[in-house]
């Protein structure tokens, strides 16, 4: 049975492009242009995953509101925000509402497909846990579960977005070696990434580690080059 995916996007071209790309992957896609129609359709039949734009028509917070309403019906519903609102504050509000991921536009379709697949896999894992096919990779106090896309630091779960998870995974692949910006950019599998974007992600990741462990200092800058996972001393 194919997954049911709902797309709420007011721009018809983008809506069409998303739908085409997802249908090509074998998903069943229903697309909506505004909050009202989406809300009405989805309250009768919940999809397996929702892709939401935040600004819908004249309603600038329609996406957030819809997310709140849908999660009230089904709290385990994976919600992926895909929006032109790229400010940090919007991202934080979206994730706080319970969204699983937040992607700024422009987005690559390949990345979107990949991301949706990951989210669905995560959902499946959550619904019926199966033993991990691959053991979690451990580096010092850090352990990375690639299947569950989960990171533990000193046995504590770190809440990371998928992009952040991928950046950590890329850094830890060869601990102690510098990883260039270019490699990190590729790891995000986003289309247009600048060094600033990487720096911002790294800063957020550091913050999350520091929230668990104030002595955390394993992510080191390689100025003019990139980053490096430092071995714990």
């Amino acid at each position: 049975m194919s997954y049911q995916i709902a797309i709420v996007e007011d721009d018809p071209d983008q809506r069409h492009n998303y739908a085409m790309a997802l249908e090509k992957q074998g998903y069943t896609v229903s697309a909506y242009a505004d909050r009202g129609s989406a809300r009405e359709a989805m309250s009768s039949a919940m999809p397996d995953l929702v892709v939401l734009d935040i600004i819908l028509g004249h309603e600038i917070d329609a996406g957030f509101q819809l997310c709140r309403e849908l999660l009230a019906i089904d709290p385990s519903l994976p919600v992926l925000f895909l929006t032109e609102r790229v400010d940090e504050i919007d991202k934080i509000s979206g994730l706080r509402l319970g969204a699983w991921d937040y992607q700024p536009k422009p987005v690559s379709l390949a990345f979107l497909v990949e991301r949706i697949a990951s989210l669905l896999r995560l959902r499946a894992l959550r619904d019926e846990p199966i033993p991990a096919t691959r053991p979690a990779q451990a580096t010092g106090h850090l352990s990375i579960d690639a299947d569950a896309m989960q990171v533990h630091w000193r046995q504590q779960l770190l809440e990371l977005t998928i992009t952040e998870f991928r950046l950590i995974a890329a850094l830890v692949r060869r601990p102690g070696y510098p990883v260039a910006y270019e490699a990190l950019m590729q790891a995000t599998i986003q289309q247009y990434v600048t060094r600033n974007t990487i720096n911002t992600h790294m800063r957020n990741i550091r913050r999350k580690f520091c929230a668990l462990d104030s002595a955390f200092a394993c992510i080191g800058n390689e100025y003019g080059h990139g980053y490096r996972w430092l071995k714990e001393s």
């Binding site: 492009n17 422009p106 987005v107």
Partner: peptide, 24 residues
């Protein structure tokens, strides 16, 4: 500029995704 970025990201996204389809 920020407003401009918000506004331009939508058409940019349209063009980018369309190009991907074209490429595919």
């Amino acid at each position: 500029p920020r407003t401009l970025r918000h506004e331009i990201n939508n058409p940019l996204n349209t063009a980018a995704t369309s190009l991907e389809h074209l490429q595919a």
